[in-house]
Structure formats: C-alpha cells, structure tokens
Nucleic acid binder design. Structure first.
Length: 749
DNA sequence: TCCATCCGGGG
DNA sequence: GTGTACGGATGGA
C-alpha cells in the first residue's frame, strides 16, 4: 500500500486505519502509551519499566499502555500522582507514524505494517472553488452559494442553479441540488487530494453551513467532514481523502521566500505561474454577473479553480517532500508552521535515540518565554548611494552551519568538561566538544543529505524525472534547514533553550562582522551587509578575481561546514537604508528589496515611476531619472496623465455602515451606492482624488466617473514618496523635482 | 515608546 | 483531539 492518510476508530480497543491508493487497512495491534518519570512507588499493573535518555542523562521510566487514546486525558490527573507525565500529549496518529517508522507516500508492507521501498511522488488532484452572494450578510453561510467550480486533470465542471442554460455550465434546480451535484462530481472524479485556496477558512465551512440550513447531507465517499480548530485556523478533514488548503501551507512555509507581501490567489499565482496565467477576473461584481452575465461568472469561477489546480501542481511536491522528511501525514504537514515541522522531525529522531520528548510549555510558561527578547542579526548601515560593481557574498546556510560547527544544543550547553570551555560563544556560554548534541546531529543529517543531493543533481540531466525528484527533495530539505533557526528560541518549543538561541545569533553577528573587517583589510569597500551576506565593491580592474581569492582565504579559516559563497557579481546597486536597496544584474534585470510598493493602494503612476527611476539610476543615468520625474510632474500639472494611471484601489472590508473612519474608499463606496451600484464587503473600490480644498475623503470620486484630478495630491502623496528615498540616497534634493522654487506652481495654477 | 487591537485568505 | 493556539502592522494614549 502507498500510504496517503492515517486515522483511527473503535470505541473499546482502538484500531488504526491506514488509507492507501484505493485500499484501506485496519491495524488493531498498536496501543497508545505514555511515560511516567516515577517519584516512587511500584510499577502499575500492565506497565513496563524501560530506560530512556532525558536530555543527557539516563532515567528509568514507566511505559503505561491504554486501550484507546481517549483514556489518556481521562486518567491524566490520577497518573500525575505517580510522577511526571511524558509524551502524554503526542496525538495518536503521529505516535503511530513514528513508532511504526511509516512515511507518507511511501510503501507500507501489509499485513505486518512495516515500511517498504516504493515511493510515490504525485497524487491525483482536484481543485474547487465556490462563489457566494453577500446580500444576506457576510458571515460564513449567511448568503447563498451560487456557483461551484471544479478543475482536475482533463476535467472541469461548473455548477450553478436557477439560471437559463449557459455554455459549459451545469444548471440545476436550486442550491441544495448544486451541493449534491458537487459531491457527486468529486466522487466521480475520484481525487486522492482535494485542494482549495483558503478552503479550510471559507469554502468548506461555508458549504457545511449551507448544507445544514438546506438539510443536504455533506459526506464524501461516505466520510463526513470533520472540523477541528487549530489556533486561529480551521482544519477540515475528510477521511480517506487528503484535503489541503494551499493558502495555509503557502503562508506557513513559503511566504517568507516570496516577493509578494500579499497572499491573495492572484498574487500567489502570478508569482508561481507567471502573469499571463492570471488575466481573467479582476474587479468583478459577483451579484451583477449572477443577475446578468452568467458566462462571465462562469469564467471567473473556473479561472480560480484552474489557478488553484495549477498552483497545486507546482507546490504540492514541496509539501509531499516536507511530509516525508518530517514523517507525518500530508494532512498534518500541510497545516504545520515551520516550528512545528522542526519539532515533529525532532520527535521522530528522539524516538530513534530512545530519548524522552520534553513536554510542551504550559500557556503561562510560553507567555513568559515570549516576553524574553534577544538580539538578532547584524545589519550594517549601508553606504548610501550608487555603487558599481557589487559582489554579493553570503554564507551557505549560516545558522544551521553555526549550530553544527559549534555543537549548539540544549543537551551540550555548559557541559562539565573543562576542555569544552574553549568552544565559547560571544555570550559566554559554551558547548560540549566531546559528544554531538541532539539538535546539531539532526541538522547535520539534513544538511549532509542536501549536499549529497546537490552533488547528484549535477550529474543528472536537468529537467528529467530523476532530477526533478532530487530538486524537490533538496528544496524541502532547505526549507526545513532554514526553519531550525529560531526553533530553540521559539516560545512553544519543546527543546527550548534561549541561551542556545542567543549563542547562535551572537556567533552569527560575530562571523559576519569579522568577514566585513577582513574584506576591508583586503581593500574592498563594504557597502552593505545583512545577517548572512556582505556586499562589496572596489575599483580594481580584476574585481571578480579578487573576490574569489578573498573567499578562498576566508573559507580556509572557517570551521567546517561553514562556507562563504559568491552569490553573484552585479553591475550596480543603489542603497537607501537598511533593508532597502536595489541591484542590477549584468543582464539588466533588477533585484529590488524593501522599496517596491506592490500594494494596490498605490496608483499605477507611483509604482511604474519608482521602477523606472530605479532602472535609470542603476544604469548611472541619474540626470535622466530626474528629468523623467520632472517630466511627470509637469505632465501632472498640465493634466496630461491619463486618469487610469491615477486610480487608487482599496478593498471594502466590511459593510459601509460599520465604518467609523470616513476613509476615502468608504466615502466613494457611499457615492457608488447613491449612484445605484451594489457595494458589498469585498468590493474593490477604485477612486481618483479630484481637485479642491476639502479633505481627501471628500474629494475622492469613483474612477468610473472621474474627469479631473488633483495634480498636487498625486505629486506629493504618490509620485514623490515613491521616488524620493532613492534620490535622497544619492544626495539629491526633492525640492528640485517639485520645481516650485520661484513659487512657480502657484503662479501656474 | 508602549500597549492593545486588528487583520490575514475567501465572497 | 494523548485539545485551548500566530505574528506583524497599525493606531491611540
């Protein structure tokens, strides 16, 4: 069996249920258990005495068995009398995966239930999306669902109700029928994975509420939907089918590596699939389309499930890779934060080492830990302005390699050996040099596997199945490796050790500042540096050769496996402040950090002009950049800029009545309603600021009827803020760009 | 600057 | 579900 999911059932003796491709297997032979570190007294009946390692000392503990996981919370208080309870908060399915050595998407040999050799890399995926009205309220399930779309391999279906027949759309009698039709369509397609975008938070709860109201049973292949609260999130489980909310996974594991700060389906799809895939849609009135243009609604809905499907094809392999490394079900891994991924990997490793897992901190304990702040990475104040060329050097996995190199771990800190004190962090604590710590050992296994995979990838042909499998796994290993940073300082961590976390960060600062000093002694100008990177320049004619020679010298001195690498030689860079800079590659493409305003509440004018100014400045054409802005200022004053460039978009988040602040988009929403337009929460309000002396809110007019605009507003609040930082970094004067020296502008107006 | 509250994704 | 939990941005005191 290729393992897809695991659950359990039974009322007396628990039975584990293994879900595989097209088959189900029940295992009644595994019993829940916990450990007790006994105070005194004698071994309870049916319990076993076993030896385990608690951090770094051997202890004798009692292993107490149960018939069913439900017994554990029931007997908790009573058992506490006997001693400290351990591993009494490990969910049963996770316990089973670990103890049986099972991995998701790997073979399970039956009936013994032991890991086999085969492995799957992809599953049959179905994406879905629902459209709803908002007329009876925006709470989950308040208004009607009017359309459901599905998209799979060679499969697409759009269902609606109470409409004239329309091309490509299955039209049924009513909403209840539509839900039935949806369930039937899912069952007919037979997915192994069902995906949505924010579906745990929206589509599934919405479907549940509507189904309840309409008295339609909502079961897929006979499995009812189970709703579980996980913090602020909902998790929706459908036994026998892997339900995944792509949004949650992207937010938890991928967002920190993404350019976009917004995680809407469109923004995420644009980044992963490319802009051209994300054309249809935009601002659409669902209610209007429902009443007038059902084909438009059809295209919109299908586009969203199609994007979700295409996104799933890109992203799910990474999730599968992570789940396999962490050793938990795809369902669970899909909803873990990076800290939890690390923790479940550690718990699995601890089992292999016969180590007792530390308990999770109680709420108060976690709160106290959260209050403890510690100094993070070093960020150098940049030498403001334009520099060329720029060499970007960075440490390969800085924090993981520091943890390995210095053996940083809760079980090695301040050990009793005299000789280990030379391995002392800048914070004063030291780490054992005799015995490898639990955390470094775990990180090293991941790090070494990744290095081996990267070496292997070089021998494989790029783009082949084998190469892709290796590439995906190394990506997953990298994500996990990066997640270890911060784990020991994470307030909910079981292996929490603030001094170990502090030491890691302090060593990081120590190494990067040492590199900067060395670089300066080698004749480089250190323009900027942040955490694990340094950006160097010099006027040597052999710049790249010099940099490589410098790296070689540095690497000879760094402890294994730390290494400083050349990320690239850039044509030029403009540096504004810490975390805000732009680099230009040799091929002319840009890397922009902290500057770009990709937010929609900035006009097209502001976004485009910032990009153009960065481009010109990096090409050394500062004069041209100034002229470009001056030209735009002039055009704005002469009212020659097309209105479309000046449209500002803000989404209405709640009902108009419930806004206390009369923000511009709120006032515009009122005006739109007065014009007979339907304005509901979720509508993106497009407006332009018109001339006049009243407040901005009063002067904001709907983009659809805007005839004129306030030139000064756009100059002062859109254009100049977007570009001024860059000119200021170059030592320029904003006044010059305003062209107001002689009070000319007042004169012209 | 500190503290409390809001908000994310979806419609 | 062997339960009860996130973190950054924003705005007012």
């Amino acid at each position: 069996m290729i393992l897809l999911d695991v659950g359990y059932r039974g009322s007396g003796d628990v039975k584990v249920v293994l879900y595989g491709r097209g088959e189900v297997f029940e295992d009644g032979s595994f019993r829940p258990y916990i450990y007790i570190v006994p105070r005194d007294g004698k071994l309870p009946e049916g319990a076993e005495e076993v030896e385990r390692i608690d951090l770094n000392r051997k202890v004798k503990v009692w292993k107490v068995f149960f018939r069913h996981p439900k017994e554990v919370p029931r007997k908790r208080e009573e058992l506490k009398e006997l001693g400290e309870l351990r591993e009494a908060d490990i969910p049963f399915v996770r316990r089973y995966m670990i103890d049986k050595g099972l991995l998701p998407l790997h073979e399970v040999v039956l009936p013994e239930v032991k890991p086999g050799k085969k492995e799957a890399h992809e599953l049959r995926v179905l994406a879905f999306d629902i459209e709803t009205l908002t007329d009876e309220g925006t709470g989950v399930g308040d208004s009607k669902i009017i359309m459901i779309s599905l998209f799979g391999e060679g499969f697409e279906k759009v269902i609606t109700w109470g409409q004239e027949a329309a091309k490509g759309v299955t039209v049924v009698e009513n909403e209840a029928e539509m839900i039935r039709e949806f369930v039937a369509a899912v069952e007919a397609y037979g997915p192994e994975v069902i995906v949505g975008y924010n579906s745990d938070g929206f589509d599934w709860p919405y479907l549940r509420r509507r189904a309840e109201k309409l008295k339609v049973p909502l079961k897929i292949n006979g499995s009812p939907l189970q709703f579980v609260r996980k913090g602020r999130d909902n998790a929706v489980r459908i036994e026998g089918l892997v339900n995944i909310d792509l949004y949650i996974f992207i937010r938890n594991m991928l967002s920190q590596y993404m350019q976009s700060e917004s995680l809407t389906l469109n923004a995420v799809a644009e980044e992963f699939l490319g802009k051209e895939k994300v054309q249809i849609g935009g601002a659409m009135g669902i209610e209007e389309a429902w009443h007038g243009d059902i084909e438009k609604l059809y295209r919109y809905s299908l586009q969203d499930s199609k994007l979700t499907y295409l996104l799933a094809l890109e992203i799910l392999p990474i999730l599968y890779g992570l789940a396999k490394i962490v050793g938990q079900t795809i369902f669970d891994a899909a909803r873990m934060s990076s800290g939890q991924m690390v923790e479940w990997l550690l718990i699995r490793k601890a089992f292999g080492e016969k180590m007792l897992v530390p308990n999770r901190p109680k709420y108060e304990e976690a709160a106290e830990r959260r209050a403890v702040r510690f100094e993070g990475a070093f960020v150098k104040e940049p030498i403001k302005g334009l520099h060329k060329p720029i060499a970007v050097c960075d440490f390969r996995s800085l924090y993981p390699t520091i943890i390995i190199a210095h053996n940083i771990s809760p079980d090695t800190i301040n050990c009793g050996h005299r000789g280990c004190r030379k391995n002392r962090a800048p914070t004063g604590v030291w780490f054992c040099t005799d015995k490898e710590g639990f955390i470094p050992k775990t990180i090293r296994s991941i790090f070494e596997e990744r290095m081996a995979l990267k070496a292997r990838m070089k021998e494989l042909k790029k783009g082949t199945v084998e190469w892709k499998v290796a590439y995906t796994r190394q990506t997953a290993l990298k994500l996990l490796l990066n997640s270890f940073y911060g784990y020991m300082g994470y307030s909910n961590a079981r292996w929490y050790d603030i001094e170990a976390a502090r030491a890691t960060a302090a060593w990081g600062r120590d190494y990067i500042t040492r590199i900067m000093r060395d670089a300066a002694m080698h004749g480089f100008t250190v323009v900027y540096g942040d955490t694990d990177s340094v950006m160097l320049t010099s006027d040597s004619s052999e710049f790249e050769r010099d940099v490589r020679k410098f790296l070689k010298e540095i690497n000879a001195k760094l402890p294994d496996p730390m290494r400083l690498e050349l990320e690239g030689i850039f044509r030029s860079g403009v540096f504004v402040t810490k975390k805000r800079y732009a680099l230009m590659r040799k091929d002319g493409s840009l890397v922009v950090k902290g500057l770009e305003r990709v937010r929609r509440d900035w006009s097209g004018l502001a976004r485009k002009s910032q990009e153009e100014v960065i481009r010109l400045v990096l090409q050394g054409k500062v004069g041209e950049a100034k002229e470009f802005i001056k030209g735009l200022v002039k055009k704005l004053r002469a009212k020659e800029v097309p209105i479309e460039e000046l449209v500002i978009r803000t989404q209405l988040k709640k009902r108009i009545e419930s806004y206390e602040q009369q923000a511009p988009h709120v006032k515009v929403a009122r005006k739109l309603r007065a014009m007979g337009k339907k304005v509901t929460p979720g509508t993106v309000i497009e407006y332009v600021v018109a001339p006049g002396s009243r407040s901005i809110s009063d002067r904001a007019v709907p983009a659809s009827v805007a005839k004129d605009y306030d030139a000064d507003y756009y100059i002062e609040n859109q254009l100049l803020p977007a570009v001024s930082r860059i000119f200021e970094a170059l030592g320029g004067d904003i006044e010059e760009l305003r062209m107001k020296q002689a009070g000319l502008s007042q004169f012209l107006e």
